[in-house]
Write a protein that binds this DNA or RNA. Structure first.
Length: 225
DNA sequence: CACCAGGCAAGTA
DNA sequence: TACTTGCATGGT
């Protein structure tokens, strides 16, 4: 027998799937590109990240070795469109240093590591917090880890599933303790949440058409709690 | 013009 | 421990 939470999450997922086609996240050709994108998209529009990624890719810099060897000033210049470019250049350097020092520069070895240990390692990197770490685990390493972001918070608060003080780990457990351990499910679920918020929770609220409008108890835009 | 985007760390009291 | 602030470009 399944829990009420499980039923509620299943209903949410079904509503989203019924409304949208599969999102096919993460937009990245290689695991390393996904990792770089995870850092660059911190509090930043994805469109801006794409420009930065493109700069690196076109110059053959989008691999651990070349990016690690790139001077910080040059790296910052290449990722400038993604914003916060000075601090993000350092964060990317911290990431490549981690790959180098902990896994001898062997990215495949890193992605094969045990999930909990790898998460702990990623979180020890200055500039990698829980959402960035979990995005790497799920979308680069294909591990069954649910990614929580600001959209997930807003939607679940608005629909009465959690309160404002719920922590990242608690909200993550809400999903992971009540859904099958399936990386494909987690991948699609998170992508659909982001898609929903982008399409229906922005300045011109279109709540009357939101796929979650019947997923009570909320009514009205989640952007104005 | 103001506001914010697929966060995080450092500073302050 | 509990708030607050800095980081920065580009689109609405």
């Amino acid at each position: 027998m399944q829990s009420a939470t499980n039923q509620r999450l299943n209903e949410m997922f079904d509503l989203l799937l019924d409304h949208f086609s599969p999102q096919n996240w993460w937009p990245g050709e290689t695991p390393f590109e996904v990792m770089v994108g995870a850092v660059l998209t911190q509090n930043t529009n994805w469109k801006n990240v794409e420009k930065a990624i493109d700069n690196l890719k076109r110059q053959g810099l989008l691999n651990p070795e070349n990016l690690h060897a790139l001077p910080l000033s040059r790296l910052a210049e290449e990722i400038r469109p993604a914003g916060y470019y000075n601090i993000k250049a350092k964060r990317l350097r911290n990431l490549t240093t981690f790959i180098e020092e902990r896994y001898g520069g062997d990215l495949a070895a890193m992605l094969d590591a045990e999930s909990g240990a790898l998460r702990e390692g990623l979180l020890s990197i200055k500039g990698v917090g829980p959402e960035t770490a979990d995005s790497i685990l799920l979308y680069a390493a294909n591990l069954p880890v649910f990614v929580i972001d600001a959209y997930t918070y807003r939607i679940l608060i608005r629909h009465g599933m959690i309160d404002e003080e719920t922590t990242y780990d608690e909200l993550q457990s809400l999903f992971m303790d009540h859904l099958p351990e399936d990386s494909r499910l987690f991948n699609e679920f998170h992508a659909l949440i982001v898609r929903t918020a982008k399409d229906y929770c922005r300045k011109t609220p279109r709540c009357e058409h939101c796929p979650l409008r019947s997923w009570g108890p909320s009514e009205g835009p989640i952007s104005s709690p």
